[in-house]
Amino acid sequence: MERIKIGILGAAGYTGGELIRVLLNHPQAEIVFANSESNAGNPVSDVHEGLIGETDLKFTDQMPFNQVDVVFFCFGHGKSEAFLKEHTIPENVKIIDLAQDFRIKGNHDYVYGLPEINKADMAKAQHLANPGCFATAIQLALLPAANLNLLKEDVSVNAITGSTGAGQKPGATTHFSWRAGNLSIYKPFQHQHIAEIRQSLAQVQGYLDADIDFIPYRGNFARGIFCTAVVKTAVPAEEIIEAYKDFYADAAFTHYTDKAIDLKQVVNTNKALVHCEKFGNKLLITSAIDNLLKGAVGQAVQNMNLMFGIDETAGLRLKASAF
């Protein structure tokens, strides 16, 4: 079995560590290098201590792109585009960017990597923009509704994320003593993921005139995203639920469930769970993902599998950690 040779840039952060964890257990993956200038020469397990005993891999400040088939960008937002202006990656090397730099269609060839709607284009892609974490949870909640042409009025969305969504660098709103037992909102109606959410919903519905009124919350837990969305519609619940089941019937990791969902069902997995309930003319949709997996690294590996024509689920059959 030929292995996919992989390079990782920004390997010392949360997404870099989670990516290494997943790839070490991927049957067709081989990590060639994990780049981190500040940690060069140090064992990866010195930073990502959950990997003690699992790998002898060391961080490097080298970037031997000619030795890999694909490189993952685990940079902060805005750094991927800047990096490509200063470095040349061979044309035959695929790129999967986990930042937001290329998610919006424009003067670039990056395919937006949401498998539930773009799988055919992703299979042919050389360069791929991995969706954002909030964006993934919200899109998966709303895409079947868009497919039914239900998004005609403004949509109210609330979603809460764990502290790992803010990255590994400590900040005023991420350290334990502030976050524990606390709750807050940030960037109401202005979150950077709204643009990519609108792009996908318009792609499926054909247009999108309604606003997505998104209020993000900081949660006092480490990982996961729980989302609620309210859509006004007179369409019967039975018709909507059947449409949701049909929309995700062939999805590898996104599942509609008739039961109310909770966050622990998805944490440590690449799954997304979606549930609908009707209250009069209001449709309540809930969705849940792990922000580091289906919201970042897991989806990126799923996308790599699709780009290389192998089993979409390879390396991603993960068990929810709470059960």
Score class of each variant (00 low, 15 high):
Val157Ser: 04
Phe75Asn: 01
Val297Phe: 01
Lys187Ala: 14
Thr60Asn: 14
Ile89Glu: 14
Thr60His: 11
Val44Ala: 06
Val155Leu: 06
Glu242Trp: 13
Thr233Tyr: 00
Ala120Phe: 15
Ala195Gly: 03
Leu201Cys: 05
Asn158Lys: 07
Leu318Ala: 10
Lys264Pro: 03
His275Asp: 05
Gly10Ser: 01
Thr313Leu: 15
Leu51His: 11
Leu273Val: 05
Phe279His: 14
Pro27Ser: 07
Ser184Glu: 08
Gln302Pro: 14
Val274Trp: 06
Ile117His: 01
Ala172Thr: 15
Asp213Glu: 15
Tyr217Thr: 00
Asp101Pro: 02
Gly167Thr: 08
Glu18Trp: 05
Leu292Pro: 10
Asp61Glu: 12
Gly295Asp: 00
Pro131Cys: 00
Thr269Arg: 04
Ala146Arg: 02
Ser156Tyr: 11
Asp109Phe: 08
Ala120His: 13
Gly53Tyr: 02
Glu2Ile: 15
Asn268Gly: 06
Asp109Ile: 06
Gln205Asp: 00
Gly16Met: 00
Asn268Glu: 12
Gly17Arg: 04
Leu143Lys: 05
Ala99Met: 00
Ala243Ile: 05
Tyr248Trp: 07
Tyr110His: 09
Arg218Pro: 02
Leu201Arg: 02
Gly132Tyr: 03
Tyr217Glu: 01
Ala322Ser: 12
Phe176Asp: 13
Val111Ile: 11
Val274Tyr: 08
Gln190Asn: 12
Arg3Ala: 10
Asp69Cys: 09
Thr174Ile: 03
Leu9Cys: 10
Lys94Glu: 08
Gly13Leu: 01
Asp250Arg: 14
Pro27Leu: 04
Gly13Ser: 01
Asp56Leu: 05
Asn92His: 15
Ala260Ser: 13
Ala125Trp: 15
Cys276Glu: 09
His26Ser: 05
Leu150Phe: 03
Asp211Val: 08
Gly7Phe: 06
Ile310Trp: 10
Asn281Tyr: 02
